[in-house]
Design a protein around this nucleic acid. Sequence first.
DNA 1: AAATAGGTTTAGCCACTGCTAAAATTTCAC
DNA 2: GTGAAATTTTAGCAGTGGCTAAACCTATTT
Lengths: 147, 147
Amino acid sequence: MPPTARKTGTARLRSQAFRRIRADHQSELAEDYVELIADLIDEKGEARGSDVALRLGVANATVVKTLKRLQDAGLVTQEPYRSIFLTGEGWRMAEGGRRKHRIVEGFLLALGVTEATARIDSEGIEHHVSEETLRAMARFLARGRTG
Amino acid sequence: MPPTARKTGTARLRSQAFRRIRADHQSELAEDYVELIADLIDEKGEARGSDVALRLGVANATVVKTLKRLQDAGLVTQEPYRSIFLTGEGWRMAEGGRRKHRIVEGFLLALGVTEATARIDSEGIEHHVSEETLRAMARFLARGRTG
DNA sequence: AAATAGGTTTAGCCACTGCTAAAATTTCAC
DNA sequence: GTGAAATTTTAGCAGTGGCTAAACCTATTT
């Protein structure tokens, strides 16, 4: 077996993690958008582009451009100058994001970090936790509650 | 108090998390590179661009381009066709990354996830945990060891 | 020392995510 | 119902991070 073969095998295994992170980053923005839109619809009855921009901390124009892509991706629908709606798939993704968010944030709180930190860190972490880790977090939460 | 004022205050608080995530993403790639370069130097005595590319799972050309930026940022030094070195600041950043990585990965293992998942998830999570959360994780690890 | 094989860089492309300034549209006040 | 104000979209720029193909060095072999 040439040394190159072993090297390649090992590296492929290592690079797996990085490949997944790059893929996560792609879906991350989409998930943030739909989650936020879902929240706005629940809170105020409608989601305006400018509200999304405000909460995300980006310029209005950036939101317009991104929403166009999300529309092409089948996650949202909208008419010019009107508020934003989620498609079925958009809602599904938003729910998935919210669920992860709840678990991670609750877990961090249970771990003993302050509310402000839990809120901020969970926003960043939620897109990088696998189902397995989520289950472990949920288990920890359940154990803490009963014990 | 006009409704806009309250709205803006709330939104600024919320957008804080997203702003930090965008900032994290900027440093994330740099941290991954220097951490990997440090590992390669420790393991094999030198870091070649192609090894970095292999482990990161990207094309050689991508690494060349990124290293140019890292050089401008004062994190690495290199001559064309030669291997890569870290500056003092590069080493400092690599050490910081490794420390976070160790804590997060150890924490996930202690939480009960499998090694493969711990390795993959920690790679994604390490760039999004605050010092406060790291301390909480370290505390959890210490407690587990003594109890 | 020359040829060739192998590894590295350059060139040029694309998509994404951000911005500001200007144009377009809607809304509101009168 | 018109005109001014506010909101939203378009246009165009910049930087990041990815790719392939072609050009370029280095190193090895003979």
